[in-house]
Design a protein around this nucleic acid. Structure first.
Lengths: 241, 241
DNA sequence: CGGGTGCTTGAGCTGTATCAACGTCTGTGG
DNA sequence: CCACAGACGTTGATACAGCTCAAGCACCCG
């Protein structure tokens, strides 16, 4: 892994760098991340049960937003990666009807409503950046809706795996075809709306075809052209350039 | 239909009334809707093909956001109702990877980026309102993901139909169990990720069970308690009070 | 070494898709 | 005013992707 100077920059700062023009704005942006906290896998960061007063900014590791249905089944709404907000909907609406949990070891910083609002006053540019970030989440969710609504299990799976690689690349400068994969097949299945049994068969097929492989906890997408064709993947919605 | 004084208020103003405290803010809010335009069904309001410079505010009628896949199939991401923004993601990200089209006769007003940004400067409260509106869209899309990902065709259908009634009620003060339904079974199917043939069978079942009925273009949800049980519907995500 | 968690595999079943017609209504042009 | 086209809704027969149930395996950790 070639770690250039960019790689040292914080994920959130890298994500929003386009919305920083002055030194004051840079400082403001960095102030978001000042107080950091370490969280273990499985720990809850936001819950539908209690009114939300604080959200988080995810700096390292993976989290997920999910909803549990009355029959006990769970649907993962989105995997949250470094640079993403966690529970922002909760503080903007005063409540959030789904939960957010750490999937790996995670580093977060807290964001409260008043800090967010004061940012709006102090820097319209950064305000635009936060709006941009919300819009991007909407674009991602729209793509997920299309993914689950229209594609079969194979295409769905591949689409998500490519997306995760791209998103990590944008924020960490890493190789989009190779990344740490800290989640189980069951988690994946719950994000894609299929059973873990079927998820297993789909992944086995992809490995048999040498389209991807796993080395320990690292996933490698071996044949991107073919994978992108299978999934009909167009990165535009991630706002990559 | 009992039209109280509230019903005369514009959908957008009604939706954001919590974020208005001063007269200046009220004026600012109303200025969003000043220049209105009438659009016919089927007309395109935003497209993935061209960079977006303007978004719209929907005042009357229904629209939908959708994406067309290479194989020609279409997935409807969301039905947009009065008070909703159309194509906001487009102007915030500079592009939008899906299209927005009017489903009925529609009245819109234009929103451009600079107007939006200047609002942020002039009124932090209204800025919060716009953030709230985006958050609500995210909450709705999250629920749709759960809907398509975890529920069968019957529950999915009922969930969406109840949701639309609630959303219209919030913004028009109408009866949530009875509303104008300007879309086809095919549209519904494309929003729910099932075929129009199966959509037809599901709707016939619901009519046979007298759980809902259609009078011309009006849908009537006859047995809300049963319907809400079928769909496992919880209105919290719509921020209804 | 035992128990938990995640992965894998098989056999049979079912919800929904697909394919193919036909019915019905509405608007339109001859 | 009728004929026709096109859009929408309806129905039946058949196929299959993915689900369910059930069991066994591999690894890790206490």
């Amino acid at each position: 892994m070639n770690k250039g100077s960019l790689d040292r920059r914080d994920a959130f700062e890298r994500k929003l760098h386009r919305f920083v023009s002055t030194e004051a704005e840079r400082a403001l942006l960095q102030s978001f991340s000042s107080v950091r906290r370490r969280i273990a896998p499985g720990e809850e960061l936001a819950s539908a049960d209690r009114p939300s007063k604080i959200a988080y900014l995810l700096h390292e590791g993976w989290a997920c937003a999910y909803k549990v249905l009355p029959d006990g089944s769970r649907h993962i709404i989105d995997f949250r990666l470094p640079g993403d907000f966690l529970g922002l909907v909760g503080i903007l609406m005063g409540k959030q009807e789904y939960d957010v949990t750490a999937l790996s070891n995670v580093v977060v910083s807290e964001v409260n409503t008043s800090r967010l609002i004061s940012t709006f006053r102090e820097s319209p540019l950064l305000a635009e950046g936060i709006l941009w970030s919300l819009s991007r989440d909407i674009a991602i969710m729209a793509e997920h809706l299309v993914n689950i609504g229209r594609r079969d299990a194979l295409a769905r799976t591949v689409h998500l795996l490519i997306e995760l690689g791209y998103r990590l690349n944008q924020v960490q400068g890493s190789d989009p075809t190779t990344y740490e994969f800290p989640i189980t097949q069951k988690d994946l299945a719950e994000a894609l709306g299929i059973t873990h049994v079927h998820m297993n068969r789909v992944l086995r097929y992809l490995r048999n075809q040498r389209l991807l492989s796993f080395n320990g906890n690292t996933i490698v997408l071996n044949d991107m052209p073919t994978l992108m064709r299978i999934a009909d993947f167009e990165p535009g919605y991630l706002d990559s350039r």
